[in-house]
Amino acid sequence: MNEINNWLTQLDQATQEWLGELGDDVTEAELMWQAFPDGHSIGSVLTHIAEVEGYWLHHIACGEPYHDLEAEVLNAAIDQGAVKWPTPPPHPLSFYKALLAKTREKTKLLIKALDNPNHTAMRGEREFTLSWLMTHVIVHEAYHGGQAVLLLLQQRMGK
């Protein structure tokens, strides 16, 4: 169980670091802004972070039914390969923080309930270890969290 707690602590620390850099005064316009047509926005990136955590840790690792958070919040799918990120609807930063917190709360409950750091899960024909799944989500979040901070800086520093 200590290994599981360590992974969850790492995930929380990564989140706290980039959320701290993002700050609390991000406007709805800043959350919706895209540097280029169909490009990333802070709001879509934050939704994507929650979506990926839910997909890999709730659905794949723990067998929960899949919940398409991106379609629900953004009313469209993100196509990362084609760089097509929908403009998010206007929501305050508190909306996205609540989305992330709700996802994390569920992650902690589900992953702790596994009580097995050697747990494996299947996605189609491929088997994933809990170690891989947790590492993937931690790295993914750090990448996109930094991206959200950079998008804010880009706006505020004059592009």
Score class of each variant (00 low, 15 high):
residue 101 A to W: 09
residue 5 N to E: 15
residue 65 P to W: 05
residue 40 H to D: 05
residue 47 T to Q: 03
residue 76 A to Y: 04
residue 16 Q to V: 06
residue 6 N to A: 14
residue 117 P to V: 03
residue 47 T to V: 07
residue 2 N to T: 14
residue 96 Y to T: 00
residue 136 H to P: 05
residue 23 G to E: 10
residue 75 N to K: 14
residue 21 E to M: 12
residue 141 E to M: 06
residue 142 A to R: 13
residue 4 I to M: 08
residue 26 V to R: 00
residue 157 M to S: 15
residue 125 E to Q: 14
residue 31 L to G: 03
residue 48 H to D: 03
residue 90 P to E: 07
residue 52 V to G: 01
residue 131 S to N: 15
residue 102 K to R: 15
residue 9 T to H: 14
residue 4 I to E: 01
residue 39 G to N: 05
residue 109 L to K: 15
residue 3 E to V: 12
residue 42 I to W: 00
residue 35 A to V: 11
residue 5 N to Q: 15
residue 59 H to N: 13
residue 63 G to T: 11
residue 121 A to D: 07
residue 134 M to F: 09
residue 34 Q to V: 01
residue 143 Y to V: 11
residue 149 V to Q: 08
residue 2 N to F: 08
residue 78 I to P: 00
residue 6 N to Q: 15
residue 122 M to S: 14
residue 74 L to I: 07
residue 74 L to R: 06
residue 42 I to L: 02
residue 132 W to C: 03
residue 71 A to S: 13
residue 21 E to K: 14
residue 129 T to C: 07
residue 141 E to K: 04
residue 141 E to S: 09
residue 80 Q to Y: 13
residue 21 E to F: 12
residue 63 G to V: 09
residue 15 T to G: 11
residue 81 G to V: 10
residue 18 W to E: 02
residue 21 E to H: 12
residue 38 D to E: 14
residue 138 I to Q: 09
residue 22 L to W: 02
residue 135 T to Y: 04
residue 33 W to I: 00
residue 131 S to A: 15
residue 9 T to K: 14
residue 1 M to G: 13
residue 16 Q to E: 14
residue 102 K to Q: 15
residue 57 L to I: 03
residue 141 E to F: 05
residue 24 D to I: 12
residue 106 K to I: 03
residue 142 A to Y: 08
residue 37 P to Y: 08
residue 65 P to C: 06
residue 27 T to Q: 04
residue 77 A to P: 07
residue 49 I to E: 00
residue 66 Y to D: 11
residue 98 A to M: 11
residue 122 M to W: 10
residue 98 A to Q: 15
residue 112 K to M: 10
residue 24 D to F: 11
residue 69 L to S: 04
residue 117 P to C: 05
residue 32 M to R: 11
residue 99 L to G: 00
residue 48 H to E: 02
residue 99 L to F: 01
residue 159 K to T: 10
residue 94 S to Q: 13
residue 111 I to L: 05
residue 14 A to D: 09
residue 68 D to C: 08
residue 16 Q to I: 08
residue 128 F to P: 06
residue 75 N to D: 13
residue 127 E to G: 02
residue 106 K to P: 01
residue 17 E to P: 01
residue 135 T to G: 06
residue 5 N to V: 06
residue 129 T to R: 04
residue 152 L to T: 01
residue 65 P to D: 10
residue 141 E to L: 04
residue 48 H to L: 02
residue 63 G to D: 09
residue 47 T to H: 00
residue 5 N to K: 15
residue 32 M to Q: 14
residue 93 L to K: 06
residue 147 Q to I: 05
residue 98 A to T: 12
residue 49 I to N: 00
residue 50 A to F: 01
residue 99 L to M: 11
residue 18 W to F: 14
residue 44 S to T: 10
residue 159 K to G: 12
residue 95 F to Q: 03
residue 37 P to V: 06
residue 11 L to R: 00
residue 147 Q to K: 07
residue 19 L to D: 04
residue 81 G to M: 10
residue 7 W to A: 09
residue 92 P to A: 08
residue 9 T to A: 13
residue 62 C to M: 08
residue 132 W to K: 08
residue 45 V to C: 07
